[in-house]
Computed example of a mutant assay.
Amino acid sequence: MELIAAAADPAAYLADDDAVDHRHPLVRTIAARLRALAPDAYDYAKTAYGFVRDTVPHSADAGDPRVTWRASDVLGRRTGICHAKSHALAALLRAEGIPAGFCYQRLTEDDGSEPVLHGLNAVLLPGRTHWSRIDARGNIPGVVDAAFSLDEERLAWPVRPELGEAESPVVHAAPPPHLLAALQAAPDRARLVLPADLPS
């Protein structure tokens, strides 16, 4: 799938905002620690991906009721759903000057019911002409086996069009406002109501 940047200004994919607060001291501290382990951009991106995927448990897998959405909170509390984890990964990448954005899939249950929006990232590394999607949702043994891969996607969930699932080729510079509003309004994960429509 050829990915399309939604923002005309490339600087939008390096921006600091409420959700991707990469200037926060905690984000900066973690980024510096990861950079010390991985001096070039490729290795850093792979290391940051692994850090978010493996050390920030997906709250549904962990049975954690807390809802996080701001990158620094996700990293500080070490919990979040896919969207929250994508905000954290984008913050760590942008903290080191690597353009990062957001991509979305509409997924369903195995019978095609209960559509929900799944969030992941896209990254544009130096010297590359195209974006690559990466999914730091967190692996579940025997179910999800996502990995950092720039040329052959290794995402958490394959889209199943026969069940009405779909994905967008658009790389968003910021999470959609209605998605952020849903995360911010939820008192806990049990009462979190995610949108089902792909953002335009």
Rank of each mutant, 00 (worst) to 15 (best):
D73N: 14
V67S: 11
K46E: 15
L75W: 09
D73I: 05
L75P: 10
D54R: 02
G76I: 11
W69L: 07
L75M: 12
R53G: 01
R53N: 04
S59P: 08
D61Q: 14
T47M: 06
R53W: 01
V67T: 12
V56E: 03
F51I: 06
T55L: 00
A62I: 12
A45M: 05
A48K: 04
L75E: 09
D64A: 09
T55R: 05
Y49H: 12
R53Y: 00
H58L: 05
H58T: 10
G76R: 08
T68R: 14
D64E: 15
D61C: 01
A71Y: 07
R77W: 08
T68G: 07
R78S: 11
A48N: 03
P57T: 00
S59D: 13
R77M: 13
R53T: 00
G63E: 14
T47Q: 06
G76L: 06
S72K: 05
A60H: 11
F51Y: 15
T55I: 00
Y49K: 03
H58A: 07
H58Y: 09
R66L: 09
F51D: 03
G63S: 08
T79V: 15
P65D: 13
G76E: 12
S59Q: 15
T68M: 12
V74M: 09
A71K: 11
P57I: 02
V67C: 10
A60Y: 14
G76K: 11
T79Y: 03
H58Q: 12
D61W: 04
Y49C: 06
R66E: 10
S59C: 14
V56I: 15
A60F: 15
G63Q: 09
K46D: 05
K46H: 10
L75C: 08
V74S: 07
G50S: 08
T68P: 14
D61H: 11
P57C: 00
D54Q: 04
P57S: 02
P65E: 12
V67R: 12
K46N: 11
P65H: 11
S59I: 00
P65K: 06
W69F: 14
A45Q: 07
T55N: 03
H58C: 03
V52I: 14
R66Y: 06
D73F: 03
T55M: 06
D64P: 15
A45D: 08
R78G: 04
G63I: 05
F51V: 02
G50V: 01
V67L: 09
D54W: 00
S72N: 12
D64V: 04
D61E: 14
A60S: 12
Y49W: 13
W69Q: 08
R53E: 02
T79N: 13
D61P: 01
D61T: 10
A60N: 09
R78Y: 02
P57D: 03
V56M: 02
L75I: 12
K46V: 00
V67W: 11
V74Y: 07
L75H: 06
H58G: 10
T47Y: 02
T55E: 03
R78C: 13
V67G: 13
V52T: 04
T55S: 14
R53D: 01
A62N: 13
A45L: 04
S59T: 10
V74A: 06
R66T: 15
A71P: 05
F51N: 03
A71W: 06
D64G: 06
G50T: 02
G63H: 13
S59R: 15
W69T: 05
K46G: 12
S59F: 01
